[in-house]
Computed example of a mutant assay.
Amino acid sequence: MFNSFFNNQFINASIKKYLEKNLKEFKNIKYAYAIMNKKNPNDFAIITNRTEWFDFYIKNNFQFIDPVLITASCRLTPFSWDENIMISSGLKMPKIFDIAKNYSVINGYTFILHDHNHNLVVLSMIMDKTCDDDIEKTILEKKNDLQMLLLTTHEKMTTLYQEIEDSNNFDKKSQKEILSKRENEIIYWASMGKSYQEIALILGIKLTTVKYHIGNTVKKLGVTNAKHAIRLGVELKLIRPVFPDSE
């Protein structure tokens, strides 16, 4: 969906702040909100407060062999995990946990979302010796809230990225000048309240030519009539000013 695959630092910092605000009651908890394209696992992004471990994780492409992600890809419901987790084939992958122990990653609880863009999205609550003794109990009690947090976080994330995508697409269209020079001239004068006959006189062209270009503009903008085309052109700032002596 997104060319940059969720790597905008400003947006991600905003999402990180949102997550941490909503995870305040889970004292000393480490979390990881991760997104992986199921069609191409190379497309992977993560927001976490366990940065040292996940910088190493990303550098080594551990998303390909992470049994937590592999398990999540085949599930809809949240699950707990530790170094003894097995993937669906019954195999264990101890290597990643042997390394993770060096970063105090021992066990955790993962919430799952499969979005409509073929992404696997997870929110993992990572537990270590710094967590409160009753942290696992608290997570289970707040399971529904945490699943909802994953949903709202991802909706917020995708909305922010979609806004950028839409803006970039609009800029590209603007650079290509959606309207030709003549179409712009005609719709500009129409937006200034000039009749088709007046526009023909101003531009020194035939009335049929004015109507022809108005029809093309209506088609290009995907509207039903000239009035709608003018309104949309003004709202989207597609109409460039025309000076009386321009041709």
Rank of each mutant, 00 (worst) to 15 (best):
D145Q: 14
M127D: 07
Y161I: 09
K101Q: 11
L120A: 02
D98E: 15
E183P: 02
D115R: 09
K142A: 09
L179V: 01
L149D: 03
S167V: 08
Y109S: 04
E185M: 11
Y103N: 01
V122G: 02
E185C: 04
L150R: 00
E177W: 06
Y103Q: 04
M125Y: 01
D171H: 13
D134I: 11
T138M: 15
L146D: 00
I135C: 08
D134F: 14
D171M: 13
A100V: 05
R182C: 04
N168V: 07
I139V: 13
N102K: 06
I112L: 06
L123N: 05
M148H: 08
D98T: 14
L179A: 01
D128P: 02
S174A: 09
V122M: 08
L140P: 00
C131Y: 05
T158Q: 07
D134P: 00
H116K: 11
E183N: 01
N117D: 07
I135N: 03
D128Q: 09
K101R: 10
V105F: 03
D98L: 13
I178T: 00
L151W: 04
N184M: 03
L150T: 05
M157V: 14
I126Y: 05
N168Q: 13
M157Y: 05
K176L: 12
I99N: 08
E155H: 10
I135R: 02
N168L: 14
T152A: 03
